Amino acid sequence: DEDNLPGLLKGTDAVADCLDSLDKKKMLERAARNAGVPYLHGAVARHEGFAFLDREGSMMSRLYAAPETTGGNMNTTGLTVAATACVMAALLVRSLGREADNRDRLFHIDVSLPELESFSLS
């Protein structure tokens, strides 16, 4: 929660979001921003996954401006979750190794095609 996150994030190199609640994702992003650590976001629905690495702590509010709604079961496949987790892991490893700066890049994967693409959010 908001009270224990600062202590949990102290001394970390990055934060990986694997949460189901948009409100909790935003709370974690704020805590990461306050702790000065990169925030790695992932989201899945049906056959699609999204991931980004945020060093500034402002992407969630840009992507998810509307309040959270509950959509029920989205029939997300295990393959979608695994593929999105792989994209997230690659972003994190490359970032921590300083191999690439993917700032302001949103990665989208569609396992039904399959296809991986990225978009600039600048």
Score class of each variant (00 low, 15 high):
90 A>V: 10
96 L>C: 00
3 D>I: 08
22 L>D: 09
5 L>P: 05
108 H>T: 10
50 F>W: 11
119 F>W: 13
86 C>N: 13
111 V>T: 14
69 T>G: 10
80 T>W: 00
2 E>W: 10
16 A>N: 03
104 D>E: 12
13 D>N: 07
115 E>L: 07
2 E>C: 12
102 N>L: 06
51 A>C: 15
93 V>M: 02
9 L>I: 09
75 N>L: 06
68 E>R: 13
79 L>S: 12
73 N>D: 15
57 G>D: 02
29 E>Q: 15
68 E>N: 10
71 G>Q: 03
63 L>Y: 04
40 L>C: 10
66 A>G: 08
46 R>A: 15
76 T>F: 13
21 S>N: 09
83 A>M: 13
72 G>N: 13
114 P>L: 07
22 L>P: 11
121 L>H: 03
90 A>M: 08
33 R>I: 01
83 A>I: 10
43 A>W: 03
29 E>D: 11
33 R>W: 07
26 K>D: 11
51 A>G: 05
13 D>H: 10
101 D>F: 00
92 L>Q: 05
61 S>L: 09
99 E>N: 04
93 V>C: 03
118 S>K: 05
82 A>W: 05
103 R>W: 02
108 H>F: 08
72 G>K: 12
26 K>H: 11
10 K>Q: 13
102 N>T: 06
60 M>Y: 06
10 K>W: 06
22 L>K: 04
117 E>V: 09
85 A>N: 03
105 R>Q: 14
38 P>G: 01
18 C>A: 15
35 A>F: 02
3 D>A: 14
99 E>F: 05
80 T>L: 04
27 M>A: 15
55 R>M: 01
10 K>V: 10
110 D>H: 01
90 A>T: 09
82 A>R: 06
22 L>S: 08
110 D>I: 00
95 S>V: 03
1 D>K: 03
91 L>S: 00
103 R>K: 12
103 R>L: 07
119 F>N: 09
117 E>K: 09
59 M>Q: 07
68 E>I: 02
46 R>K: 15
9 L>P: 08
92 L>T: 12
27 M>F: 11
67 P>T: 08
121 L>N: 01
52 F>C: 10
90 A>F: 01
96 L>V: 01
60 M>G: 11
79 L>V: 13
53 L>I: 13
80 T>Q: 03
113 L>G: 07
20 D>M: 05
90 A>Q: 11
31 A>S: 12
47 H>A: 15
9 L>H: 06
62 R>Y: 14
54 D>S: 07
27 M>I: 14
122 S>D: 14
81 V>G: 05
111 V>P: 06
103 R>N: 13
41 H>A: 11
121 L>E: 05
89 A>Y: 00
64 Y>N: 06
39 Y>Q: 01
10 K>H: 11
67 P>D: 14
23 D>A: 13
54 D>C: 12
41 H>K: 08
57 G>I: 00
59 M>H: 04
107 F>L: 01
13 D>V: 02
112 S>V: 01
80 T>H: 03
12 T>H: 14
48 E>F: 04
26 K>Q: 14
27 M>K: 14
48 E>I: 13
52 F>W: 07
115 E>I: 04
3 D>R: 08
4 N>Y: 10
4 N>C: 10
39 Y>V: 01
33 R>Y: 07
46 R>L: 13
122 S>L: 11
1 D>S: 08
5 L>G: 02
95 S>I: 00
24 K>R: 15
109 I>L: 03
65 A>G: 10
